[in-house]
Write a protein that binds this DNA or RNA. Structure first.
Lengths: 275, 275
DNA sequence: TTGCTCCTCACGTCACGTGAGGTGGC
DNA sequence: TTGCTCCTCACGTCACGTGAGGTGGC
C-alpha cells in the first residue's frame, strides 16, 4: 500500500471527478495502478498524476477522449506535435466563428442585404473532362487543387487546351456536413478518350442564375449568403434548380483578393406544368 | 397550400436537417406554420426561413438551444445585444484556452517547472470579519470585489482599520466547476458585533505552505500550476492540509502586473499518528 | 454498532444521427 | 401496384452528473 492513493485522494489532486476516473479506467485511458479484487477498490500511484493532469489540460482544450488516448501513446516530442496540430484546427474553427459573428452582426443591422446581386445568363453546350468523388468538407480544398492539376496535365498530355472556365459541381444539395459527390470539370474541344476516374461528358445548354464574387469572398460567411440569395431568387420565380457550381473564370493565383474571381451558379428550368 | 413548403424543401433551404426541424418543432423553438391533422405532415412558410437561418447561425456559434429560444423572443436591437454578450463570453473562453495551450507547451518542453517556489511560515491567531456564500466559478470575480467593498465599509462605519492583509478562503477542495463556499475575510483588532451575513471569527494560529505570485499570475494556467506545486509539496512531506486561501498583501490596483501581489496558501498540520 | 468511503447499476442531459417499421398521395 | 415522402418510435453517441442501494474496514 506504499504510495497508493484512494480514488478520492487521486481525484482531488488530479482535479478529475471520481465518475470521470471510473470512466477513464473502463475505457483504458487511465487504468488504476492496482484494483483490489475483493472490494473492487481502485488505487492510483503518484506517477499517474502526471498523466491525469495532461488529460485534464487536453479536456479543457476540448480534445475528445479517444484522441487523448491516442496522443498519450506517443512519446514526448510526437505528443507535442499532435497537440499542436489539434490546436491549429481549433484555432481555424475559432477564426471561422469570428467571421460568422461578423456576418451575423452585419445581417442583423440590416447591412449588406443587396450585396449579392443575382444575374442570369444562357450557357452553351460544352464538352467537359470530369473528375468526381465522394468527399467531406475538410477534404474539399485539397481535392479541388489536386483534381485541377490532374485534369490539366491530362489535357496537356493529349495535346489539348482548356476551352473555357473550369468549374466545380456540388451534388449534395448544400448539406455541407455529410459526405457527397463533388465533380471537378474542365471544358475542352476536339476528341478525348475517357480514362480511369476521368470521364468525358456533354454538359447540356442551360440557363443559370449566378452571383459574381471576389477572391476574398470565397470564405465562409459570404458564400453562405450567396447561396441564400440565389435560392431565394430562384424560388421567387418558381424555378426548378439543379446542383450548384462554382465557375473559376479568372486565373486564381494571379487575382488580387478584391477582384472578381469566380461565379456561384445554379442551372435552372421552368417549373413543371402545375400553376 | 399557397407558399407552404414541405419539411424537405424547408430543410434544404434553411440548411437544417429534418431531424433538427422536428426537434425544434417539439420544443417550440420553431414550430411549423401548419400541421396536417390527418397525416401529421409539417408545412413551413417562406417567412419562417429567416428565423431558421438565424438559428443555423447561432448554432454554429455553439449557442445552446434554450438560449437561442430566449434570444428569438427579443426584438431586433435587444437580440443583437444578447448575441454580443454571448459572443464576448465565448471570446473570453477562447482566450482562456489559448493561455492553457501556452502553458501546456511550456510544460511539455520541460520549462518552468521550478517557477513556483513553495515556502512555509507560521501565522499568528487573528480575528477576521467574514462574508461567505455558495457561488460558482463565473460569479467569483464580482463576488470578491463587492464583498471586499462591503467589508471595508462595515469596518469604516465601526471606526476600525484593517489589521492585516485581506484574504479569500475556498472551501470546496479545488473542484472549480460545482458551486461551493467561498469566504472573503478582513482581519481587524478590537471589538466588532456580527451583522446579518457578516460573521466575526477567530482564525487559529497555524503553519501554511505558500507560493508568492505576481499580479499577472492571477490568471488561470499559472494558478493551476501553483495548486499542483503546493499539493505536491505537502504530499511529499505527508502533511494534512485545509482549505486553500489567497492572501492579498499588496494594494491591488496600485500594483504593476509583474510585481508580487498575493500568496496562494494551504494551512497544514502533521499527519495523525500512523507511520 | 455507527460513519465513512467505496462500489455497481441505471437513468438523465445535450443535440442530434441513424435505422426500423408504417402511412398517404401520385 | 410501385416509388416516394413523410411519419413516429426507439436506440446510439459523447462525456459525463446524479442519485439509489449496497458493501468493507476502522
Amino acid at each position: 500500500m506504499q504510495g497508493l492513493m484512494t480514488i478520492r485522494a487521486f481525484s482531488q489532486r488530479s482535479r478529475l471527478t471520481q465518475r470521470a476516473l471510473r470512466l477513464y479506467g473502463e475505457s483504458g485511458l487511465l487504468e488504476p495502478a492496482f484494483v483490489d479484487e475483493q472490494t473492487s477498490y481502485r488505487y492510483y500511484t503518484e506517477a499517474q498524476l502526471e498523466t491525469a493532469r495532461q488529460i485534464v489540460l487536453l479536456r479543457q482544450l476540448e480534445m475528445p477522449l479517444n484522441q487523448i488516448a491516442e496522443v498519450l501513446k506517443l512519446d514526448a516530442a510526437q505528443r507535442l506535435t499532435a497537440i499542436e496540430i489539434f490546436w491549429t484546427e481549433a484555432e481555424a474553427q475559432i477564426t471561422q466563428r469570428r467571421k460568422l459573428m461578423g456576418y451575423l452582426r452585419g445581417r442583423m443591422r440590416g447591412e449588406a442585404r443587396g450585396n449579392f446581386a443575382v444575374q442570369s445568363r444562357a450557357v452553351l453546350e460544352q464538352k467537359v473532362l470530369v473528375l468526381g468523388r465522394e468527399i467531406t468538407r475538410p477534404e474539399l480544398q485539397s481535392f479541388i487543387q489536386t483534381s485541377f492539376a490532374a485534369l490539366f496535365s491530362h489535357l496537356a498530355h493529349a495535346g489539348r487546351q482548356p476551352a473555357g472556365a473550369p468549374l466545380v459541381i456540388y451534388h449534395w444539395e448544400l448539406d455541407f456536413d455529410s459526405p457527397g459527390l463533388v465533380e471537378v470539370c474542365v471544358p475542352f474541344e476536339g476528341h478525348l478518350e475517357p480514362a480511369p476516374n476521368l470521364s468525358v461528358r456533354l454538359e447540356p445548354a442551360h440557363h443559370e442564375a449566378f452571383v459574381r464574387l471576389t477572391k476574398a469572398q470565397v470564405e465562409y460567411p459570404d458564400l453562405l449568403h450567396t447561396y441564400d440569395a440565389l435560392t431565394d431568387w430562384l424560388h421567387a420565380r418558381s424555378l426548378i434548380y439543379a446542383a450548384p457550381r462554382e465557375i473559376y473564370f479568372a486565373p486564381w493565383d494571379a487575382t488580387p483578393p478584391d477582384q472578381p474571381a469566380f461565379d456561384v451558379a445554379f442551372p435552372y428550368s421552368q417549373e413543371e406544368e402545375n400553376g
